[in-house]
Design a protein around this nucleic acid. Sequence first.
DNA 1: AGAATGGACTTTTTT
DNA 2: AGTCCATTCT
Length: 788
Amino acid sequence: MRQYELRRNESAPAADDERAREVLEGLNEAQQTAVQATEGPVMIIAGPGSGKTRTLTHRIAYLIARGKAQPRDVMALTFTNKAAREMRQRVQQIIGSGSARGMWMGTFHSTFARLLRREGKHIGYTSDFSIYDTDDTDRLLRNLMKGLNIDPKQFKVRAMRSLISSAKNQLVSPDDYQRMATGAAQERAAQLYGPYVQTLRRANALDFDDLLIKPIELFETHPDILEQYQRRWRYLHIDEYQDTNHAQYKLAKLLAARHKNICVVGDDAQSIYAFRGADIGNILSFQRDYPDATVVRLEQNYRSTKTILQLADSIIKQNEDQLEKELWTENHEGEYVVLIEALSERDEAKKIEQTVRDLHVREGYSYDDFAILYRTNAQSRSLEEALRRGGIPYRVIGGVSFYQRKEIKDVLAYLRLLVNPSDQASLRRVINYPTRGIGAKTQERLFQYARREGLSAWQAIQQIDESGLSTRAQNAVERFGFLISSHAAKAESMPADELARALIKETGMLDELRNENTRESLGRWENVQELISAIAEFTAQAEEATLATFLQEVALLTDLDEDEGQGNRITLMTLHASKGLEFPVVFVSGLEEGLFPLSRAAQEREQLEEERRLFYVGATRAEQKLFLSYARSRFLYGTQESAVRSRFLDEIDPAVVRTKAGGPIKRKKNRFTLEEGDAVDYDDVDPHYYRRNLRGSHNTSAKRTRTTTRRAGTGSSSGGSSSSGRRVVYDEGAAEIVPGVRVEHDHFGEGKVQALDGEGEQMAATVFFQSVGQKKLKLKYAKLRRIG
DNA sequence: AGAATGGACTTTTTT
DNA sequence: AGTCCATTCT
């Protein structure tokens, strides 16, 4: 491909019509329209697999080829680093490597972090600011809650965080929020919001929301800076526009206000992030904001078979809220979508594993052609077990990513403290790790002293001799202060990776990990080494190769962005993580009521519709084969729950689905009547049934005495009753668990019930197992089956 | 200060 | 069932 060179200072680069024609080649009519609409606002409504990234890429290439823009005039915002990376690569492929230089292409968060590195000083941030992830903010909030006497049992930290986060995204200030907060939870959040913001500010730290909000603040208070960027980015592109939240919407609007060359791409049917503030209204109201917008629909699908598309269409048709779209494809009819029915989640995993193996062996699919999708991360476990047993290589996306691991976060905290000594969260994290004699008491006194004197924690450490702490504590704190400051002093003269290595070495962390000498600790030791090489690599090739930049970028990485893990493996991930990806063979697992859709989401229409869109997203990841699966019972949240198959299975078009055996799937006329084989939860049946059988045993206090007394092996028939007035029945036909009976447990095998105590949910059995001896097990959790 | 034990609680999805 | 937290024990 010909190199397309541009001179930087040329204000009107030469047009290259031949090149522009090339860029349009191979695009369909709708895509060409979108690419050629170079002036004014453009909205591309794109179905799944319609080549929207391709269209966006070609549009950028076209702008440059036609001389409308230089690379540096172009900005493209995506939602994942991966998407940005791919787009950059493709642009380079088309217009020549190197010519994408100067183009701002990245996620919202990383892009505006970069902007704040440059301009943050105008609103009081140095470029060394720390970025706090949810882990950091949760710790911070927990501390604040302790100070304000908010009971973390009553008000969950994550709930507080998410309330504050949505207030921030809506651009509601702490004062305003205080005024508009209603209900106990919101009032607590309002109490926390102000101190939370102050703490971050004092720490020269930003959370994820700040990365979007602070630029807005900057632009609103400094119109000259806004104008500078408005002039610079004459062409603004936003991918996945349906997932923008209010702050992102506002940023886009501010930046596009001058030139109005804003091009957004989205699919309302794939909006699945409302829970984190994404506002589907942003795409629905684009035309109201920009009445002269060119609207293009990309309705041809290049990814999936006709059958898969038909199924997807039957899913999404159930939703009320949607823009009209008619998807079609020239692809083959393809095979039926297959429904896999399983008895338990283990069985489901096994059947999926067998299917994978079968397709691999018999039809020659390679392992990386497969993806298994699920609603919650917890579901990966049974799948992993089955795959491991079957010897199938896999990778899990969305578990604990490299940069989330404790040892890595510890090292990162040290480094953050080096570049940003005000970073209190990091200081708290490492001040006594590894232990160096600065215990909880000393820390408390230190922070108290700081507060009393109006010092930052770091300043307090510098002036520790006036703190009134014991000499021993003072010495320990002083040593810590010296450790940090002596390395900080070397930051200028030493390459970042060497600095990191030296610091880590001196902390003794590595020795501690090595001395522990377990498999895990050695693994952690290796992780730390790997982190150091990552720093070295970064400093060697990044544009802004400072340690601070490294730390900021690392905070915004997700493990979806990590290396594609060389090797041929199948991929396991949540439905959310699968967005934007495609695979020849896809499994959507766990299609059960309460799980998918989640029970909490099934209550409200809007949430249910989001779950349905999630199903739509999952189904449309598949190119050739799609499998849907559910289990009749599932071990979830600690208990074995019986499950009813998802309503989604009753909504889909049965004409394109077959069971594993090849038969048609049966739709239920009425999902609330039980059919043969449906598992029954006894609590859902006639509540009076048990009561009737319990006549005559209403003396509650007497019963309590009986049930709490150990009565090994008496075998009394009243042993299974509890003071709630209900007999507890745990399994169909297996009758009650009473002292004296023999039982079987999944892990411990056979045993004999010695005694029962507790009541209701708390009821526990003392069981003597042949294998492990005596155990006390809560009946609610341990699934005991009566045998013999 | 750190280990050990016992109890409560848990599970949406994520930049 | 596992994890995290708090309290108690050494």
